[in-house]
Amino acid sequence: MRLPLNQDQRKGLVGAALLSVIVLAIVGTYALWGESYQARILYATFVNLLVVVGLQVFTGNANITGFSHAAFMGIAAYAAAICVTPAAMKLISLPDAPWGLNAFDLSPIVSAMIALAITGVLGLLTGLIVVRLSGVGVTIVSIAILVIVHSIFLHRTDIFKGNQALFGIPKVFGLPHITGLVIIAIFAARLFRESAIGLQLRACADDEAGARSMGVDVYRVRLIAWVLGTMFFATAGIAYAFFLGTISARPFYFNFVFLTVAMLILGGLRSVSGAVFGTLLISIGLEVVRWLETGPTLAGLKLPQMLGLSGLLLGVVIVAVMAFLPNGIMGNREIEDLFRRKTKGD
C-alpha cells in the first residue's frame, strides 16, 4: 500500500517521528526520576508546545505574525469547561449564567467537539477578514481580536467569571493524553508544512506577487492555515481546562502571547522542529529563572527575591534572537536535516 503522501511529506514523517521520540524521552525521564510536582510543569510545557506548533502553521509558514492565539485558546477552554462541568457544580460557580448554560452537562468528548467547533467557526469568520489584509494589518486585527475577546471574558462575569476562577471542571486529562495530542500535533504540523498548500503558503511568504502569478490562491491557502492553526489553539485550550480543573481570563492575554511567540522565534518560525526546540528551551530556562526569582539559597548565599526576572529574560531572548539570530536556531531546517550530510547546496 502506498501512502497518499508526497516525497517531502514522507521525509516529514521521519522528522516528526524523531521529534516524537524526543517528547517521549522527556516523558520517560519524568516517569522514571521525576517528582510529582513536575507533572504540572511538564503538562504546561506540552500545552505551550501545542500552541507554538499551531503558531508555526500560520505565522511560521505565512511569515505573518498573529497575536490572537491566546484568544482562541481561551474561547475553547471556556467552551469546553462550561459544557463539561456538572450542572450541579455550575449552579454554584455560574449562578447567573444566561441561556440555560448552567442547566446541562455533557461528556468530555462531546464538550471538546463543541469547543473545537465553536473555535473553528470563529477562526473561519476572523480568517475571512484576516487573510485579506497585508502583513501589519493581520498583526493589528489579531491584536484587536485578542483585546475584544479578553474584554468579553472580563466583562461577562455571568458566563466567564472574569478574573475570578471558573472552578469545578472535571479533571479528565493527564500526562498521557497531552503527550498523545502533542505527538499528533507535531505530525499534523509537519505534514501540513510539506503539503502542497504548505508549500504554496511558504512561497507566498517569500514572494507574494510571484506566487500569485504562478496561480497560487493566496487567500485560500492563508485561510486554510489560519483555521488549522486555531484548531491547534483550541486543542491546547481544551487540554488546559481539562487538566487544571479551573480557568480564569488572565492567562489568555498578552503575557502568554509573548511567551509563545518568543518560543517560536527562538526555535525558528519556519520550521516545526524549531517550534518544538524553542518551546523546550524556553520552558527549561524559565523554570530555572522562576526558581532564582523566589530568592533561593545558592552555595550558602541567600539571593534576594527578584520579581520580574523571568519576564526580563523573555524580553532579552526576543530582542537577542531578533538582533543576532533572526531566523532562529533552526532557520529553514528541520530535525532530519541535522542528520543528513550536505547533499545539495543548502
Partner: peptide
Amino acid sequence: GADLTTGLLTAFGVSIILQNLFLL
C-alpha cells in the same frame, strides 16, 4: 532595515524588558 515583523517583535521584547526592569 529589517522587515516589519522583526522590528515589531524586537519592540515587544524591549517593552517586556523595560516593564520587568521597572518591576525589579
